[in-house]
Write a protein that binds this DNA or RNA. Sequence first.
DNA 1: TGATTCACG
DNA 2: GACGTACGTGAATCAG
Length: 935
Amino acid sequence: MASTFGKGCHLHLIDGSAYIFRAFHALPPLTRKSDGLPIGAVSGFCNMLHRYVEGNTGPDAPTHVAVIFDKGSHTFRNDMYDLYKANREAMPEDLRPQIPLTRRATEAFNIACKEIEGFEADDIMATLACRAREAGGRVTILSSDKDLMQLVGDGVEMLDPMKNKRIDREGVMEKFGVGPERVVDVQALAGDSVDNVPGAPGIGIKTAALLINEFGSLEELLDRAEEIKQPKRRQTLIEKREQIELSKKLVQLDEGMDLPFTLDDLEVRDPVPENLLGFLSEMEFRTLTKRIADGLGVEAPVMPDTTPEGANPRSEDPDWPAIDPDRYETVGDLAALQVWIDRANERGTVAFDTETTGLNEMTCDLVGISLCIDPGSACYIPLIHRAESGEGLFGSDELAEGQIPLEQALAALKPLLEDPAVMKIGQNMKYDAKVMARYGVQIAPIDDTMLMSYAMNSGLHNHGMDALAERYLSHTPIPIKEIIGSGKSQITFDLVPIDKATRYAAEDADVTLRLARVFKPQLHVARVTRVYEGLERPLVPVLAQMEMTGIKVDRDVLNSMSNAFAQKMVQLEEEIHELAGEKFNVGSPAQLGEILFDKMSLEGGKRGKNGKYSTGADILEDLATEHELPRRVLDWRQLSKLKSTYTDALQEHINPDTGRVHTSYVQTGANTGRLASTDPNLQNIPVRSEEGRRIRTAFIAPEGHVLVSLDYSQIELRILAQMAEIDALKQAFREGQDIHAMTASEMFNVPLDEMTPDIRRQAKAINFGVIYGISGFGLARNLRIPRAEAQGFIDRYFERFPGIRAYMDATVEFAKEHKRVETLFGRQIHTPEIAAKGPRAGFAKRAAINAPIQGTAADIIRRAMIRMPDAIKGLPAKMLLQVHDELLFEVEEGAVDDLIGVARGIMENACDPVLKLDVPLVVDAGQGANWAEAH
DNA sequence: TGATTCACG
DNA sequence: GACGTACGTGAATCAG
């Protein structure tokens, strides 16, 4: 019955977004059984569509129908008024992933599904309604949105699907006090707080209708505003004329859109049973599937009862084009760049990646930028690639042709990269943000696929892009080695020919965008949205700032220490050689082992995996009681370590421009949620030995400043007391007792006032052991006592604190059941090894016991760090370093006490308001001219 | 590249 | 009954 839309035809226009929101709010938060995907709105939506289709019988049935959706958050109305709909609450997290599914649902019902980027559904409906009316047909708009009432009349009606109430001219009169053709005038005056349409202040619908009816139209009213009797109203209308006229433009629907389809495309079609039932069963809507199958007289598809936890998450979308580096665009002029910027603005999200001359964000140069808007739609913007020179391998000093001047490109990109309405997606965005910051661009807001993966998959695999692409997109990105080579012949990225660079760089952006599309909806399913949005993403700018600030290091102090160490080492080396009776490489454990255990035939020679003697510190320590040589080797090793790892290496890390050392924190470095510090690692600067601690005197505050260190006291033990609910421990912490002494007193029945340092030391070792998943062997080795004795300690400990045993057992049970453990803040650490057999099971068990404790402590200091910049904004202070339970600040001399007060408050209350601990968190503070004094 | 050693929390 | 063991990191070094 294909025919042209005309007289006798009846078009139904369904307001899809209204359906979705109604369905979402009307239903409890249902989730799909097999994987926990939130599905409530889709379910409600399908039921509404089904009911709608069922009800379409009789003479009033539509001949044409379409569900119309909004698309994109940025519309032409935002161009007129940037605050349009600015009051809108963000879409609920659980609803977001359901939006695309409602499109699929519509298609499954074989109903036309229409949306147009940059337009609201209302405009599309307005255009369609007008065309249908002109063609002589009838139109029913299924919506209760009052904005659509301007369309009513001449064969166009509205139908409130919930109240099943028809709205015609009279209905509109009732609502607005004017006919449909004057609705926009009333709305322009009355404004709309929901859509943030300003209107005329102090004038509501009633007054507006009165005025419009009196003057006939808005334009007439504004032109003759002087005639209004009430002085206040008159003044408002005269003063706010522009605002009112803008409001009218905002509420006026666009009835003349260009549409990429015709009314005839909307003809009513019967659903294709397998498509519809296929979709419904995929969503696992049992009741609806059965009902519809029965109605169609076909067999309902079988659905799995449950799917085991840890089932493969959905990866790439089959609709996406294949990743094809040949299809990426090289952007060589500003006009082409503007097209991409416009597209990114329209879309509201863009994947972003930088290419640089090196891996050090503080010193490298920006070479180019890649963007990706949709899967497969990516570009590379080369900026400072060098021209290929005829002669040598190395490019010339000249810039290659076809590149936008750096300044101009950045000026064009800056508004986009800083636009709060456009989400910039990256893989390890901290890197790109730091690079861009050096070029004056503060990129925000950001999403980070690496952090999404970390939040969901910590403990399962690494979160580098290549690994993620492989795993979740079944794609192997072009290896960087293929582009810049490796080893000696490695070149910097600015020497890569532009066409080659485009293939690599744009692919990275493409991959990143696809990963984000896969990961983002899964965050909810995995229940780590709060971890990602509350603990991971907001930390990025904080870390970036700390890294860029760096800490001042006194090169002279390090240098003179290096020299002193070198001298002593030479001396020790000579003595060692003399004692050994021959020259050998003291730094070679293999050679040392042979000297000790073969040549000198000392006791205790244990061979490791590759048949070599083990010469670790504990073994040498044992030998040192009887012999000179191992003692000297230990001393030599200590100096060697200090010199090579610290006094020498640190000097090389002093940035010549800033005179400071800039570490890099790896947010995904530790499975537990801890940070890792690299290049250099500033989280393992010596402190335990007197000799080593001197290295900290090289970390200094500049003139007029002081270093302040704040560290959590016993945070992991406090968390253990909380998580395992050990009343005695909690009580002790509340009373501010010496926790190790208290433990010792409990265990060994020694009154506190008779406590000896040695007994306390043993109890301390046990307390730490508990956190690590204690074993008799481990404690025995640590305390250098017989294993049986150590086991006795542990038994007594568990006897005194039975809750600890229960907690450990429960944690291991949880890990076995879920293959993961969790922190108090919901961070998940996957423990796949927990199922292993053999010795690995022991490791996995202890890791599972430790992870929630270490991880919760990590969460707490992260929360403090995220809040810190705002808290200390008014103080002349900077946060410099984090060392797991310590934060180091640099502050002007006069503000030390203020800083300690503020920062301590933030740290001690970092759990608020999410969590209320029964145990107080206590923060100790220290200050001084250098880190040794401050700690 | 992997193993060993040792610095930190 | 044996297995082997404290938890989490990064860097330097040797040796293949």
